[in-house]
């Protein structure tokens, strides 16, 4: 029981660490949203599972917090990403692609028309 709790806790901590590392290493706001949302959410789920194995009498409250984070964290970061996209924060393009204007700007305009 303690070993299962430690394995879940360590897996969750590793995923939280990798999410924060992606928050440092990624080149753009949108990439950082992806890293900081999905990896940190999975890490939080792992840590809550580990705590539920460690303290089995707290499972209902941990289940409520786990479901709440699992539901609301993708919603909030999707709202943030949509708000950035609407308020003209440019996505990061690669240097070779940004030299040629047509290949980088055409799908971007199609996305813009689709969102409005």
């Amino acid at each position: 029981m303690r070993l299962a709790a430690d394995i879940f806790l360590l897996a969750g901590a590793v995923f939280i660490f990798l999410g924060a590392l992606g928050l440092i290493r990624m080149p753009d706001v949108y990439n950082r949203i992806q890293a900081g949302t999905k990896a940190v959410t999975l890490g939080a789920i792992g840590v809550f599972l580990g705590l539920a194995f460690l303290f089995p009498q707290w499972w209902h409250k941990l289940l409520v917090i786990m479901g709440f984070i699992l539901l609301t964290n993708p919603v909030s970061s999707s709202a943030i990403a949509r708000a950035f996209y609407v308020s003209n924060v440019r996505p990061w393009v690669h240097e070779e692609e940004s030299n040629s204007e047509e290949s980088s700007s055409r799908p971007f305009k199609e996305k813009q028309e689709l969102s409005q």
Partner: peptide, 22 residues
């Protein structure tokens, strides 16, 4: 930029929830 700060504040809120449970 400011969007980077907002994104990291969003990630920090989840990490703070995890730390409170720990």
């Amino acid at each position: 930029t400011t969007p980077d700060r907002i994104v990291s504040a969003d990630a920090l809120s989840v990490i703070a929830t995890v730390i409170l449970c720990i």
